[in-house]
């Protein structure tokens, strides 16, 4: 695909374009890291992402005048993690279906955050923070570096620690994991906390970049994240997957969109191609897995 991109568009293979694609990707990429945990642990999907992103963005701007930019940012991310904790408790300990739990918690959280600020748009008061987020180190935008750091940490946890092994065990075979003394409930809840934190972080970054935040700021990110994770071969039934694969898929999807835009493909068609891509990728995955079992 990269070859096609290079051949078909002279600007495709330029540093500028690559930086472009990665910057656009960073915000959703951070969410993808968290979402991978949720899918691997067998938690289907976290639909509260738009709410937790909005929570991160709105609070990190709204609290700035009162407690300063850095504490505001930390409080916003922590509260987003708190939302994840509530979803996690409902799913892990009480056994409510994740779709319903995250949908409900998301609705409530977004409503509360909106009432806190009176249901209007929040503007930033400290332009220096925007400069910081938009600045570059060695020509690489800071958000991309943050994303890379989060991805590395996430990958390390999932692939090289007990926590990660337990996550796979819980998602792969819940009762077997429980029998071998894996704290399945806590692990399941933890995945949602992780997504909450990630989404809060990416919301905070988004808010600082734009210097304004509205309640609908996170709309659509949940589906973009799920798309990347699923196309990356992470089974929605849990127990399999890895963060590098999810991110590779995200990069693939981003470049695909990028090439379509460079080719002047209209927006509706892009949705069509993306939908088809998800369906085909997953159907292939299922077919291949069935064959290898047989």
């Amino acid at each position: 695909m990269l070859v096609y991109g290079t051949l078909s568009s002279p600007v495709f293979l330029t540093t500028g374009n690559f930086v472009n694609v990665f910057t656009s990707m960073a915000i959703v990429g951070i969410v993808v890291v968290g979402m991978t945990f949720v899918l691997v642990v067998g938690g289907l999907a976290d639909l509260s992402v738009p709410a937790t992103i909005a929570c991160g963005a709105i609070l990190s701007l709204a609290l700035q005048p009162a407690i300063g930019p850095v504490p505001a940012f930390l409080v916003a991310v922590a509260l987003a993690g708190g939302c994840g904790l509530i979803s996690g408790l409902l799913v892990g300990y009480i056994g409510i279906n994740p779709i319903i739990a995250t949908l409900g918690v998301g609705t409530i959280v977004l409503g509360i955050v909106e009432s806190l600020v009176g249901g209007v748009i929040v503007y930033g008061t400290d332009p220096a923070t925007a400069e910081l987020v938009k600045s570059r180190v060695f020509g690489i935008p800071v958000v991309v570096l943050i994303f890379a750091a989060i991805a590395c940490v996430g990958h390390f946890i999932l692939s090289h620690t007990y926590l990660g092994r337990w996550t796979f065990a819980t998602g792969g075979n819940y009762s077997a994991a429980e029998a071998s003394a894996v704290p399945v409930r806590a692990i399941k809840a933890g995945a949602f906390v992780m997504t909450g934190l990630c989404a809060g972080l990416s919301g905070g970054l988004l808010g600082l970049t734009l210097q304004s935040a509205r309640p609908l700021i996170g709309t659509g990110y949940e589906f973009s994240a799920i798309t990347a994770v699923v196309v990356g071969g992470v089974s929605i039934m849990g127990g399999a997957g890895s963060i590098p694969r999810a991110i590779a898929a995200l990069i693939f999807v981003q470049f695909l969109t990028n090439i379509m835009v460079l080719q002047g493909v209209r927006t509706p068609v892009q949705g069509f191609v993306l939908g088809l891509l998800i369906a085909v990728a997953v159907a292939l995955d299922v077919a291949l897995r069935r064959r290898s079992v047989a």
């Binding site: 589906f223 949705g271 939908g275 998800i278 369906a279 997953v282 077919a287």
Partner: peptide, 27 residues
């Protein structure tokens, strides 16, 4: 077809078709 014949999880399958049908509507 996607869910039953190709055995794609219905959540993912209809997430995909949600995008597809919506873009056909725009189209």
């Amino acid at each position: 077809l996607l869910s039953v014949v190709f055995k794609v999880n219905s959540l993912v399958a209809t997430l995909a078709t949600m995008l597809i049908f919506r873009s056909i509507a725009h189209w």
